[in-house]
């Protein structure tokens, strides 16, 4: 019974990781930039929502408003990141990734300077703070639902709209898109902005689940990266499967074998890499 609860927790955690990782993986696919600021963006989302809402339980409407505002801020930060990367074009992918890492340190240390390095959390909004089926926290169910909705929207955009088709085509062959007269730069920018918005939104979504604290940025970044290593770069399906897997390892795995959970994550990653060095759904790039 308690394992079932763990599995459900893992589903909620996986949903949260998916919201974070899907942006990261698509930004990589579109821009060839590994956005190592993704964890800091998540953290920024959490801290800004915490500052806005004052750490107290608020109404669902207010909470949603704050979440939207934070997502918009994430989009703006995405714009800043894109502009910052611009001068480094033609300087190799590593330098761009390193730049995002440097900016990530600045962003997260700035936030920690504004608040402090201690633990902070925010209770779920009114209406989502109850429990279902006796004692299971309703908020976690809501996170799973949010993950499903966002996953559905992303999938729909990709598979059913012209914009999504452009992104898919650009991932496969950027040269071809430019050749047929599509403004690749604009498609790229949109993906960057959307991905960063999702990252800060995930930060709000995760507030009641993961405590705000120093080091949260790298912790979630690493988990999102493991999701991508497992699932494969630039693959939405990969992000889904990877996130669900990591979610389970981090909950069920920890419950079953607390001492081994860390190695379990490594084992899963290593096994996938042995099978396909580009991840489950990845292609060699």
């Amino acid at each position: 019974m308690s394992l079932l609860v763990n599995a459900f927790d893992g589903l909620a955690f996986g949903a949260l990781l998916f919201v974070l990782a899907v942006g990261l993986t698509l930004i990589y696919g579109m821009l060839d930039v590994l956005n190592l600021a993704h964890g800091a963006l998540y953290m920024a989302g959490g801290y800004i929502a915490y500052l806005l809402l004052g750490g107290a339980s608020v109404s669902l409407g207010l909470w949603a408003g704050a979440a939207l505002l934070v997502a918009a801020l994430g989009v703006a930060l995405g714009g800043v990141l894109s502009a910052a990367i611009l001068p480094l074009r033609g300087r190799g992918h590593l330098d761009q990734a390193l730049l995002t890492l440097g900016l990530a340190i600045l962003l997260s240390e700035f936030l920690l300077g504004v608040v402090d390095r201690g633990f902070h959390t925010l209770p779920p909004p009114d209406g989502l703070d109850g429990s279902v089926l006796g004692s299971y926290p309703l908020y976690r169910v809501a996170v799973i639902a949010a993950g499903l909705v966002i996953g559905g929207i992303v999938y729909w955009i990709f598979e059913r709209t012209r914009a999504g088709a452009l992104v898919r085509a650009a991932v496969d062959d950027p040269g071809m898109l430019a050749a047929i007269g599509v403004n690749v730069a604009r498609v790229r920018l949109s993906v960057m902005l959307a991905g960063c918005g999702l990252a800060t939104f995930a930060g709000v979504l995760g507030l009641p689940l993961l405590n705000l604290r120093a080091g949260l940025d790298s912790e979630v970044l690493v988990l999102a990266l493991i999701v991508i290593v497992i699932g494969g770069l630039a693959s939405i399906r990969g992000a889904v499967v990877g996130a669900l897997l990591v979610g389970q390892v981090q909950t069920v795995g920890v419950a079953l074998a607390p001492e081994l959970a860390a190695y379990l994550l490594f084992a899963v990653m290593a096994a996938v890499l042995l099978w396909n060095p580009s991840g489950m759904f990845g292609r060699a790039r």
């Binding site: 990266l225 493991i226 770069l233 290593a270 890499l273």
Partner: peptide, 20 residues
């Protein structure tokens, strides 16, 4: 395991190993 990956995958893998 790590040397079977390259570029960003190496970076991600090593980062993950460190945290693990």
């Amino acid at each position: 395991f790590a040397v079977r990956t390259r570029g960003f995958f190496f970076l991600m893998f090593t980062l993950a190993i460190g945290e693990i």
